[in-house]
Write a protein that binds this DNA or RNA. Structure first.
Lengths: 300, 300
DNA sequence: CAGATTTTTTCGTATTTCCAGAAAGGTGTC
DNA sequence: GACACCTTTCTGGAAATACGAAAAAATCTG
């Protein structure tokens, strides 16, 4: 149908921006005559001159200027296509699915996601909030690519990368009975009061999950519910400073001290994946960005 | 450098959308083998298959789907470039400069401009408000392409297209003395009260301009000033219903009857241009759109 | 103003790319 | 199994594109 529009337009742009056929030829690694040919092709195809030739500089004609923007758009789009294709050829994922433990620092995660997505517009991202309970099954089933979670020890078929430690402490609204005790909490205190617990589905067997201390447990499958329940003084939950950062600032909730270090576990947060299906280049880059984001958050 | 990306991508898109190499070949007026060749080229260049071949239908692979959007973007941009180039070759303007008489119905003009610009994104538009006084000089000097104006008769070196008629009547705020007279205005009434007059530059010779009835004249070079002066009852001006449509609806200003038809001139609005430099295709289309907009406004 | 210099175009040619038609291989249908 | 339909492969030729050399045009220099 039509000759190689993209390369011709690239020549057009290079000549316009450098003002010279020979400089354009050098930057594009092509012969001068080839550049001249490309421009001649374009101009015959358009039916009018694009450049006003000068011996020292060549400049756009009026109509050339009118087309210049569209010319750049074409080559820019072509560049994106080929670069995306190259990245896919390197094994880049078309989609990244991650499960995030509810106590993982969300602010840092979203900072990392923001910079990530600015560089990879076309990647489909799926985020699932999750408690520790069924993460491994999701990973083994291949329904997610990697998990951001707290672990004491990884299962044998998993591997991962550790970030920093966070401390989980019982958290309540400031006017909750536990907050008013005036002394470090004991296990009995926590058992007596209602605990709010994240569970992604009602079918989870509550006998098998971890970190359930109380005998009176309410569950929710969305952090927004948990946030409101805690703020309204309905119960207590384990949380790190990150999740309630704003409410802590406003004096709405409080992280409570415990009498025994066992009661406020310090855990390492990490990314984990199936050892025989490691994340691709994009997944690894995202993990790196998350590590950076966690570090800068810790530093600030 | 690289083969004819655009045509190959067009083949890719056609096959994807029709699901068949042969149908795609028919719609693109190319041989089946050529389509196959294009796809093979693309796939070797990408390094991975874009389509999962089926005997009945061919469908995108996962990575093919990831690239499809960008592929469409490339050919869409290329199409825009060539269509714009073709339009420029037909003599289409890269820029349209129009002068608009202050009493020209602005609502209709802007309706026309809106539809116009939606079809010609890259055209540079320059609008100048103007009174009749120096329009012809601007046209002759080539500083504008055509004028939208009221005329009794065109100068000999001009030609144009007439639209409908509008009536200019003295207009004031409802509490202005002229509005409270309770009888049709006479020339003496209008001479006695302050007239507000549009003048694009202070250097205009007020002796030579038309439609100045009063001995007490204020001028402004922006319709926004005129609108406020009238609404605040500072004076009267000639106006059609169009300009004060909203204020008429809200009962803020009133168009006043005159004792003599001479005092409320009915004029034909029209587009005018220099006979030996007619508007190009785009200018003619814009004039047509303005005519349409004026008609539908009259009809409604 | 002649000559040196730089830049662009033209020209000839080699190479690559592209297309159409024929042949071949597959798959599903009757 | 014959038939219809589709895709790929093969092949020859046509078109497009690259390069270097040479010519042409403009500029700079002394």
């Amino acid at each position: 149908m039509q000759p190689n529009l993209v390369d011709h337009l690239a020549a057009f742009i290079a000549v316009t921006e450098t003002g010279s056929f020979s400089v354009a030829a050098r930057t594009l690694n092509r012969a001068v005559s080839s550049i001249s040919y490309s421009l001649a092709q374009l101009e015959t195809q358009c039916g009018f001159p694009l450049l006003k030739r000068g011996t020292r500089r060549s400049e756009l004609t009026e109509r050339g200027r009118a087309l210049f923007g569209e010319a750049k758009a074409v080559v820019e789009r072509a560049r994106r296509f080929t670069s995306h294709a190259a990245s896919l050829e390197q094994g880049a994922e078309t989609r990244i699915r991650i499960a995030v433990d509810v106590v993982f620092p969300h602010a840092a995660l979203h900072r990392a996601l923001k910079t990530f997505i600015s560089q990879h517009e076309r990647v489909e991202l799926q985020i699932f909030n999750s408690s520790l309970n069924n993460l491994w099954d999701e990973l083994r089933a291949g329904r997610i690519d990697f998990a951001l979670t707290l672990v004491a020890a990884l299962p044998l078929d998993m591997e991962g990368q550790s970030f920093r430690q966070i401390v989980l402490r019982p958290t309540t609204a400031v006017d909750h009975p536990l907050a008013l005790l005036g002394r470090p909490l004991t296990l009995a205190d926590m058992q007596r009061e209602r605990q709010i617990y994240f569970v992604e589905s009602p079918s989870i067997d509550m006998e098998r999950v971890g970190r359930v201390f109380s005998l009176d447990v309410w569950t929710a499958n969305d952090l927004e519910h948990i946030r409101r329940l805690i703020c309204n003084g309905v119960g207590w939950c384990f949380a790190s400073e990150d999740f309630f950062a704003e409410e802590l600032q406003n004096g709405i909730v409080r992280l409570l001290p415990c009498s025994d270090a066992q009661l406020q576990p310090s855990r390492t947060i990490s990314a984990a994946w199936l050892a025989d299906r490691r994340p691709g280049p994009l997944g690894r880059e995202l993990v790196r960005l998350i590590a950076d984001a966690l570090d800068t958050a810790a530093g600030s």
